[in-house]
Simulated scan of single mutants.
Amino acid sequence: MTRSGLTLHEPNAFLLSWAESELRGALARSPLPGAFEIFAQGSRANNTYLATGSDIDLVLMRRAPFEGGWTDFRDDVLAALGEIWPVRMGRRCLNVDDPGSLFGEMVDVLVATEYLSSSGEQGVYFLDREGRPIVNFPKQHRRNGDEKDLRTGGRFKQVVRTAKRHRPPGTPSYLLECLLHNVPDHIYRAPSAYRDALAWLRRCHREDPAAFAALPCQNGINRLFGPGPDQWEPAEAARIIDVLHQI
């Protein structure tokens, strides 16, 4: 897939910037009401992707204040992009379905409205396919991951990529990254960082299950475990840790 000489083998940062620019240009043809912001999230933005063919994940966030809600904004985005490409709403993100389009099937766009926490943290709000509300903080997730990777000399994201490569089918990569973010920095500086990180999580679950169940997401705001559609069950996480530790 190419456009203006760009291929998927170009540096990742440039590819993300290009995708953001192209989406912005497409939306400019059918202006959306109110102000909005476009930024990258996911494994490419966090530099934990495994292959050049990994999806590009973008967030299209409507800035507050605005009239109407998330559903109105989603419908406006669908209408605007539908004038250019065949589009549909997936489980959570908007997908461009035309394989011959600029994006093909490699870009997912999370349509969201701005959410401000009680402490003033900026997050995103959206509904999944079942109509369940989700609030997340992708900018904080990315920032905290970058800072931890810097503190550990690049070992944190190296371990995340290794774990993602060997994870059981169906394991959410986002939640796996959040889980590993809770491992203390000094463990990642050890020669056997991958095995030591998983061993720390196993001990935490077995010796202090209440502390394990209270672990936060990488964004430092949401809880990793709970009943929400973007949360995990402690027992399921422990099972996956055991599988990964045996590799």
Rank of each mutant, 00 (worst) to 15 (best):
M1C: 14
M1F: 06
G5S: 12
L6E: 08
L6T: 07
H9R: 13
H9L: 15
E10N: 03
P11K: 01
L16R: 14
A19P: 09
S21E: 13
E22F: 01
L23I: 05
G25S: 06
A28P: 08
Q41H: 02
G42M: 12
G42R: 05
N46M: 07
N47Q: 12
Y49Q: 13
G53D: 07
S54Q: 06
S54P: 08
S54A: 00
D55G: 00
V59N: 05
V59Y: 00
V59P: 01
M61P: 03
M61Y: 11
A64P: 13
P65E: 02
P65V: 00
P65K: 06
E67N: 02
E67C: 07
G68K: 06
G68H: 11
G69I: 00
D72I: 06
F73A: 01
D76A: 07
V77M: 07
L81I: 09
G82F: 06
G82L: 04
E83M: 14
I84Q: 10
R88Q: 15
R88Y: 07
G90Y: 10
G90D: 00
G90C: 15
R91H: 14
R91Q: 06
R92E: 11
C93I: 03
P99L: 02
L102A: 09
L102V: 00
F103I: 04
G104S: 14
G104V: 05
G104I: 04
E105Y: 11
V107K: 01
L110P: 08
V111W: 00
T113E: 10
E114V: 06
E114R: 05
Y115L: 03
S119H: 05
S119D: 03
E121G: 03
Q122R: 15
G123W: 15
Y125Q: 09
F126C: 04
F126E: 04
D128W: 04
R129I: 03
G131S: 11
R132W: 05
V135Y: 02
N136Y: 00
N136E: 07
N136L: 00
N136I: 01
Q140H: 02
Q140D: 10
Q140K: 00
H141G: 11
R143I: 04
R143T: 09
N144M: 12
G145I: 04
K148N: 08
L150G: 14
T152P: 00
T152L: 11
T152N: 08
V159E: 02
V160A: 04
R161M: 10
A163G: 07
P168K: 12
P172R: 05
S173T: 08
Y174D: 07
Y174W: 02
L175M: 09
L176A: 01
E177D: 05
E177L: 10
N182L: 05
N182G: 09
I187P: 10
I187N: 02
Y188I: 00
Y194N: 04
Y194D: 09
D196R: 13
A197P: 06
L198S: 12
L198F: 08
L201T: 01
L201Y: 12
R203M: 14
H205Y: 15
H205Q: 08
E207W: 15
D208S: 13
A210S: 08
A211N: 15
A214G: 12
A214E: 05
L215A: 08
L215T: 15
L215R: 14
Q218W: 13
Q218G: 05
I221E: 13
L224P: 04
P227F: 10
P229Y: 03
W232L: 05
P234K: 13
A237G: 04
R239W: 14
R239Q: 06
I247A: 03
